[in-house]
Write a protein that binds this DNA or RNA. Structure first.
Length: 284
DNA sequence: TACCAGGGCCTTT
DNA sequence: AAAGGCCATGGT
C-alpha cells in the first residue's frame, strides 16, 4: 500500500459512524460514473446505498469518509474491500500521467475509484443495463429488488439471490418491466444456480476463459461480460467497450491503447469514460 | 453481411 | 407536444 495515502486511521463517533481517511475518494465521481446502480445522493448531501445486504449512508467531510450506520467490524470485513480502500490509487494515477488523455481525465476527477461489487449483483445489473439508460436501469433494479429481494431492517431490499430468480417465468418478471432482458436474467440465474457458470472462479481463471464462461449465458455478450468481470470480479485488465469507449479509442488512441497500461485498463477506462461523458455536448 | 427489434428516457425541434 | 436518437445482444 502507498505510504502517503494509506487509509488506516479508523475511529468511531456516536451512533455507529466509522471515520476513515480517504482523501482521494470522491463520492459523486465514484457513484455517478455508471459502475453501480443502487447509490443515491440525498438532499442533505449524504449518499445512501445498499450492498452486501445492508443499508449504508456515507458522506465526505474534508479528507475523511464517514460511514454512517456501520460498525468497525463491518468496516474491516466488508466496506474496506467494497470501497477498495487499500488500493494505492496514488500510484495508479501516477502511472496514468505518462499518457496525455489519461492525465487530463485524472486531473478532472482525481477522486474517481472502482468499487469491488458482488459478482452476481454485478452480472445481473449489467445484463439489465444493456441497450438501456441509467435512470431506467435504476428503476428496473429497484423493482427487481422490491419484488424478489429480502426486506432490510430500516427499509430497502437486498439484491435477490440467483436462487430467488431461477425458478421464475418471464411472466412473473413482468412487474420488473425489464422488457426483452427478462429471459436473459432468468438464464443467468439458472446457469449460476446449476453450476454451469461458477462466479467465484471468474476472478482467478484465464481472462478469455472467464469471458467465454459468462458468454454462455443468453444475453451476455462481450460488453456485459467485461463489465461483470471488471466491476464484479476485480479483473482490472478488463476494458468494457461500449459506444462511448469506442469513440474515445478512435479519437485518442488510433494506434491502440498503450500496452504498458493494459493491466490497469479497466481503471483507465473509467477515468476516460467519466471525463468524456462529463464533457459531452449534451451535458454542458 | 447487413439490418432490425425492444422500450423508456433524453434532447431537440 | 411531438419527433427522433440512443443502446447490447440475438435473430433473421
Amino acid at each position: 500500500m502507498g505510504p502517503e495515502n494509506a487509509m488506516t486511521a479508523t475511529t468511531t463517533t456516536a451512533q455507529h459512524t466509522v471515520l476513515v481517511s480517504a482523501p482521494d475518494f470522491d463520492p459523486s465521481a465514484v457513484f455517478e460514473n455508471g459502475q453501480c446502480f443502487r447509490w443515491e445522493r440525498q438532499p442533505d448531501g449524504v449518499w445512501a446505498g445498499i450492498a452486501h445486504g445492508r443499508r449504508l449512508r456515507l458522506r465526505k467531510d474534508g479528507e475523511d469518509l464517514l460511514l454512517i450506520g456501520a460498525s468497525i467490524d463491518e468496516m474491516d470485513t466488508l466496506w474496506r474491500r467494497y470501497f477498495d480502500l487499500d488500493r494505492d490509487y496514488t500510484a495508479i494515477r501516477t502511472a496514468f500521467l505518462q499518457d496525455t488523455p489519461l492525465a487530463r481525465a485524472v486531473a478532472f476527477a482525481p477522486g474517481l475509484r472502482l468499487l469491488r461489487q458482488e459478482p452476481w449483483e454485478t452480472l445481473c445489473s449489467f445484463i439489465l443495463s444493456q441497450n438501456n439508460n441509467i435512470p431506467r436501469i435504476k428503476g428496473i433494479i429497484d423493482r427487481l429488488c422490491t419484488a424478489f429481494g429480502t426486506p432490510i431492517p430500516g427499509g430497502g431490499f437486498t439484491f435477490p439471490l440467483p436462487e430467488a430468480l431461477a425458478g421464475l417465468s418471464v411472466e412473473e418478471l413482468a412487474p420488473v418491466r425489464c422488457g426483452f432482458r427478462a429471459k436473459y436474467v432468468l438464464d443467468a440465474a439458472r446457469k449460476v444456480v446449476d453450476g454451469t457458470v461458477q462466479l467465484e472462479q471468474l476472478s482467478a481463471m484465464p481472462l478469455d476463459d472467464a469471458r467465454a464462461a459468462l458468454q454462455t449465458i443468453h444475453g451476455v455478450g462481450p460488453k456485459v461480460a467485461d463489465c461483470a468481470l471488471l466491476f464484479g470480479c476485480g479483473r482490472l485488465d478488463c476494458f468494457p467497450v461500449d459506444v462511448w469507449v469506442r469513440r474515445i479509442l478512435a479519437a485518442y488512441y488510433p494506434n491502440g491503447f498503450p500496452e504498458a497500461l493494459r493491466p490497469l485498463g479497466g481503471i483507465a477506462q473509467q477515468f476516460l469514460f467519466h471525463y468524456e461523458r462529463c464533457h459531452a455536448a449534451s451535458s454542458k
